[in-house]
């Protein structure tokens, strides 16, 4: 059976159900690299250019981990996922960056997803991808529909407030419906937040502190659009727009007591929206803690900062 490897990094955390369901329904065995560990992490760091942002370095590690186990690597080029915005430039050049670094890679499947070209083009991208493995058009169409369905189920579960890592890694979320304790908004890119090695177990640490975690994934798309529509200049990066939109939503609806904003070192768009986010949360008087992670981040420093921040939030809540 043909095997296709999907590296567990970057947009894996957004579209894994879509990609894996589509490929599996074509009769392909999908292989995913293991969760980030020290070996993968170090291999990525040693291979990538030193200034590349942390999640891309980790992605390199996952590619190297997978390359000997699979017939194909699946590294799509995601140019745009909505009409008027792009993704980060790194996603536009990712397959080319990977190709340039290693000579011994298996063939790379890099379909180009560009929502600016419309829904027809979107289907054709899948169709052309499917044609590499089967001549049966109906099978491809069925696989496409099943994949869409899997992705929308996944998105629905996220909206319900389930944590992405719990869904993808099969954990069980505790019942927190009538929560009276602290609620912390955890903002940032899913590939940083939910990669427990990269984020230094941030989610686990917050859970241990008996905090309800709210992530941007649970904010409806409609609200994100509404909140970001009135910015003086529209954001032209979709994923950053989601981060900003969900923070603005939390600020207005006061659904959280404080916000932890996780950034990775050398992330381009984050460096600019950080100014916007800090400015807006100051206006609303919401406590915000930006946490920058890089390959030298230590767990002890993180814990100290987190504890101090949570203590402050608890004090604020008591005073109210």
């Amino acid at each position: 059976m043909t095997t296709v490897g999907i590296p567990r990094g970057l947009l894996y955390y957004k579209y894994y159900p879509l990609w894996s369901t589509f490929l599996e329904n074509l009769g392909i065995q999908v292989v995913t690299s293991p969760s980030t560990n020290k070996k993968i992490f170090l291999r990525g760091l040693n291979t990538a250019e030193s200034e590349v942002c942390l999640p891309v370095k980790v992605f390199y590690g996952h590619v190297l981990e997978l390359k000997d186990q699979v017939d194909f690597l699946f590294i799509p080029r995601i140019v745009s996922v909505e009409g008027k915005a792009y993704t980060c430039p790194k996603f536009l050049g990712l397959p080319d960056m990977i190709k340039a670094v290693e000579n011994t890679l298996p063939p790379i499947l890099n379909p180009t997803f560009n929502a600016k070209k419309g829904i027809r083009e979107y289907y054709l991208t899948f169709y052309n991808l499917g044609r590499k493995f089967t001549q049966n058009s109906i099978k491809i169409a069925q696989a496409f529909l099943k994949a869409r369905k899997a992705q929308s189920t996944f998105n629905r579960n996220l909206l319900k407030g389930e944590l992405l890592s719990d869904i993808l890694e099969g954990g069980k979320a505790p019942n927190q419906d009538n929560w009276s304790g602290l609620r912390v908004g955890l903002a940032g890119h899913p590939y940083n937040i939910f990669d427990s090695y990269v984020s230094l177990n941030l989610i686990k640490k917050l859970k241990e502190k008996e905090v309800k975690i709210v992530t941007g994934e649970s904010v409806p798309h409609r609200r994100i659009e509404k909140e970001t529509k009135h910015l003086p200049k529209k954001l032209f990066w979709t994923y950053e727009k989601e981060v900003v939109g969900s923070i603005l939503y939390w600020l207005k609806e006061k659904v959280v007591d404080g916000i932890v904003y996780l950034l990775s070192f050398a992330c381009g768009p984050d460096s600019l929206i950080q100014v916007l986010i800090e400015d807006e949360s100051k206006k609303f008087g919401m406590p915000l803690m930006p946490l920058t992670i890089d390959e030298h981040s230590g767990e002890a420093g993180l814990v100290t900062r987190l504890e101090a921040f949570l203590d402050m939030l608890a004090r604020r809540k008591r005073r109210k």
């Binding site: 990538a48 250019e49 200034e51 590349v52 942002c53 980060c88 430039p89 790194k90 536009l92 050049g93 080319d96 960056m97 190709k99 340039a100 670094v101 050398a266 381009g268 460096s271």
Partner: peptide
């Protein structure tokens, strides 16, 4: 410039 995203992609490809 340091951390420039498009040029960083180019920089990753130029050695090849």
């Amino acid at each position: 410039p340091f951390t420039c995203m498009p040029e960083l992609i180019a920089k990753s490809i130029l050695p090849k």
